[in-house]
Amino acid sequence: GKMTGIVKWFNADKGFAFITPDDGSKDVFVHFSAIQNDGYKSLDEGQKVSFTIESGAKGPAAGNVTSL
């Protein structure tokens, strides 16, 4: 299901971020390909987002990341 959280930090050079979920679970890795914005895919620290949890090769990662 959809979860919500806050972007903890975003590394534009490497194209990934971490989200701190609102439910208090541990921070979730985000690859820029999961960001659903049109055009430039970036996130801002402190931004509120919704996302799903996908199981990636290196463990859980956020999918369908959308700005709220």
Rank of each mutant, 00 (worst) to 15 (best):
V49S: 00
L68N: 15
K48Q: 11
N37C: 15
D44R: 14
V28L: 14
T66L: 02
A57D: 13
G46C: 07
T66W: 00
I6L: 05
P21Q: 02
K26D: 10
S50D: 05
K14H: 11
G5M: 01
K26H: 08
T4I: 05
F51T: 00
S50Y: 08
P60V: 10
A12S: 11
D38M: 10
D27E: 08
D44K: 14
H31I: 06
K8T: 04
Q47V: 09
K2E: 07
G56M: 08
T52M: 10
F32G: 03
D23R: 02
V7C: 02
F32A: 07
E45G: 06
F18P: 00
V30A: 03
T52D: 08
D22V: 05
E54A: 06
G24W: 02
G24Y: 02
S25P: 02
K8L: 07
K48M: 07
H31E: 10
M3Y: 06
V49F: 01
A12G: 06
F18S: 06
E45Q: 12
T52Q: 09
T66S: 06
L68T: 15
S25A: 04
I53H: 06
F18A: 09
A57I: 10
E45C: 15
P21V: 05
M3H: 07
V30S: 00
T20E: 05
D44A: 13
E54G: 08
G15M: 10
P60N: 09
G56D: 11
V28T: 04
K58H: 15
I53S: 06
P21G: 01
I19K: 00
K41S: 11
N11L: 05
A57W: 06
F32S: 05
F29W: 11
F32V: 13
T66I: 15
K48V: 07
F16A: 02
D23Y: 03
S50F: 09
G5D: 00
I6C: 06
H31D: 14
K58G: 14
G39Y: 07
D44C: 15
I53V: 12
K26F: 07
T4F: 06
A17Y: 09
K26Y: 07
S42T: 12
T52P: 04
G59P: 09
G59K: 08
G15E: 08
E54Y: 08
G15I: 03
K2T: 14
M3T: 05
S25V: 02
D22C: 14
A12M: 10
F51L: 02
V28F: 06
S67W: 02
S42L: 11
Q36R: 05
F18R: 11
N11Q: 05
S50V: 12
K58V: 13
G59R: 07
N37L: 13
E54L: 09
D27N: 06
T52R: 06
N11G: 03
K26E: 11
S50M: 09
G1Q: 12
T52V: 12
D13R: 05
Y40S: 10
G5W: 01
T4A: 03
T20N: 03
N37I: 13
V49L: 02
T4C: 13
E54N: 07
F16Y: 13
G39S: 10
V28H: 03
A17D: 00
N64M: 09
A17V: 08
A57P: 13
L68S: 15
G1W: 06
E54W: 06
K14M: 12
F18W: 14
G59L: 09
V7H: 00
Y40M: 10
V65H: 09
S25H: 04
F18K: 10
Q36F: 10
N37M: 14
D23N: 07
P21F: 04
D22S: 05
D22H: 03
D44N: 14
F18D: 01
H31G: 05
S55V: 10
F10L: 13
A62Y: 07
S42R: 10
A12Y: 08
S25T: 08
K26A: 13
G39N: 08
P60R: 09
F18T: 06
G5F: 02
S55R: 06
G5T: 01
F32N: 03
Y40D: 09
S25L: 03
G24K: 03
F18Y: 12
G15W: 04
M3K: 10
A34D: 13
Y40C: 15
